[in-house]
Design a protein around this nucleic acid. Structure first.
Lengths: 342, 342
DNA sequence: TTGTACGCGTTATCAA
DNA sequence: TTGATAACGCGTACAA
């Protein structure tokens, strides 16, 4: 910049002004400066600019995994919106690991991010996050509904969503409902799902059987393996609720390979309503979460907080929908192959 | 830092040293400093540090879309490796749009990224990229095989991969092979795929029919729609080569909804070998690209370049594999329903 | 082992 | 409309 200033015969200050407030500099000078910048391939140093102005134009986005396409969508929406208002995205992936989450958070803070979008957080981090917020770091938690009123969030009710799917399965006369679920021991929103499942069972006086619940990371192969375990139980389930569509698709594959038929022999339900869910055979009955809306609202809220010094707290809880397709059917006693055999 | 220094009764320099070369400061002093940092919740300002040391510990990653799970994998691997060596990832998504690509590139440059990992680049950008490289910005292009020797890349031969799949379909006696393909008019590596297809046809003296080629962004719904178009042709294809698994899965769905059977009535082949490809019914025959290896090698090469002032140029071209599953079969005259009907 | 002085590339402030 | 000067928070060189 100093260099450009010399060539243009003006002060560095004027060059700086040419960038952030062009109207305050004489058009003539302005054009000359710009021309010289082009010619000398000058690139503005946003790092120095941020330092000097004590601002920041990067926001940190933390997600647990990028394998899942719902996070892909989220990333796209957020990055696009951020771009529009001149912000860049720093991305961190935790793998559901608390240590990594901590490290990334620390890294982002050191990088002076203007704000943070978290996808929930690991169990035991709430205190830390709260501290952050108190320090004045704009921060919105997405995909989760928090009890804490001090933290902004944009999410949905995981408990309720899982509850209603479980209840739907129960309404189909299922009593032995297997649950293949994400890392509930690590992440609050997944724990809420488990609680929703348990609560629905309880409501309908169905005893909770821990052997029907398997904790797995959301991936096809995990769903497949877990299903293998579940189906070899002495008293196997007649329905499988996989709290992630990937797990569900993996589960369906396992079931088919056992020579069983979905939903005739066993019902399978998912969670998320990813795009493929409708393309699977049979199309997957699942819970639709408003991924797109959440992503949009998250960045919107964050920008609002940034422009208000992190003061404004917003909490949005979107509705989820039960998407009934063809992978679940009513349980009729003794019909399923795997039960008959015994 | 100055503040911490005052409290600790040392100079700011010493505090600084306590962070990046602890061994040069007396243990006693070191511990005191660290304690005070904790107590005062001091967070290091990496932005200022980078500015001062004229280094940077963030690398820019540019991808066309996050919807595709192969990019998800890529992101995870790269972000993980980067994390390990203390680098942060800035993410940019171009949506296959040249203007956006330009803007993101510019933004990243202004942010003083230490290096760049590009997923190919839009047609017409090569000059710009080359300029970048000449300027000394460490830069590796992934997922593509470049003709240009001045640019580092870690990719595979898109031409060859498409060629061999097309040839495989031809070996199955198909002569009318529909091609549903990504934005080849925008992106070089997709164009290579198209050329591979054409070249294979030519080799086997099959005339190229433009009406059999449809350009779509890689998404389920696009594959579905494109297939609808293709199947209503006067002389419809007997095989569909979708140059992305998502397109292929969409295509299979369309085919099924027409009451046709894969592969009996029509063969469908994909590209990428995403995880679900094996879970679809019938399992998808596709081209496996070494996503994981490419991601790993990309970041490895980039780090190497960064440590060598961007001097070292590396070019890696990995092999792709034909994964033969069940979605393609030999074409026997007059057997397919949609041909019989006519 | 520690401190001083200076510079990194920009913006803010104030004065001209 | 423009410029001089002092920050911003840190690293580096050199001296002590």
């Amino acid at each position: 910049m100093k260099h450009i200033a010399e060539i243009a015969g003006v002060s560095a200050t004027t060059v700086s002004r040419a960038f952030h407030s062009p109207h305050t500099v004489r058009p003539e000078t302005y054009n000359r400066i710009l021309r010289i910048c082009k010619k000398n391939r000058y690139v503005y140093n946003a790092t120095a600019g941020d330092l000097s102005s004590k601002k920041s134009t990067v926001i940190g986005l933390i997600i647990p995994t990028a394998r899942n396409s719902i996070f892909g969508k989220t990333i796209m929406v957020i990055q696009e919106r951020a771009q529009e208002v001149g912000y860049s995205i720093m991305l961190g992936i935790t793998n559901y690991n608390k240590m990594i989450e901590q490290r990334i958070l620390q890294q982002f803070l050191e990088r002076q991010v203007a704000g943070l979008i978290l996808t929930g957080f690991c169990i035991g981090q709430e205190g830390y996050i709260k501290e952050l917020v108190e320090t004045g770091v704009p921060c919105v938690v997405r995909s989760e509904k928090l009890d804490n009123n001090d933290i902004s969030y944009v999410g949905f009710d995981n408990f309720k969503a899982a509850y209603s799917m479980t209840e739907y399965l129960i309404s189909l006369n299922h009593r032995r409902i297997g649950l293949i679920i994400g890392p509930f021991s690590k992440v609050g929103r997944v724990m809420s799902r488990l609680e929703g499942y348990r609560s629905a069972l309880e409501k309908h006086s169905i005893p909770y059987d821990p052997s029907l619940v398997i904790e797995r990371e959301p991936a096809l192969i995990e769903g497949k393996e877990a299903t293998g375990l579940l189906m070899t139980l002495d008293d196997p389930p007649t329905a499988l609720f996989a709290a992630s569509d990937w797990l569900a698709i993996g589960a369906m594959d396992a079931v088919k390979q056992m020579g069983l038929c979905v939903p005739k022999d066993i019902s399978v339900a998912g969670f998320d309503d990813i795009d493929v869910a409708a393309y699977i055979d049979p199309p997957l009955t699942t819970v639709r979460t408003p991924t797109h809306e959440i992503a949009e609202k998250s960045i919107e809220v964050l920008m609002e907080m940034i422009n208000n010094n992190g003061t404004a707290k917003r909490q949005y809880c979107f509705e989820t929908d039960l998407i009934i397709r063809k992978s679940c059917s009513e349980f009729k006693d003794k019909e399923p192959k795997h039960l008959k055999r015994r």
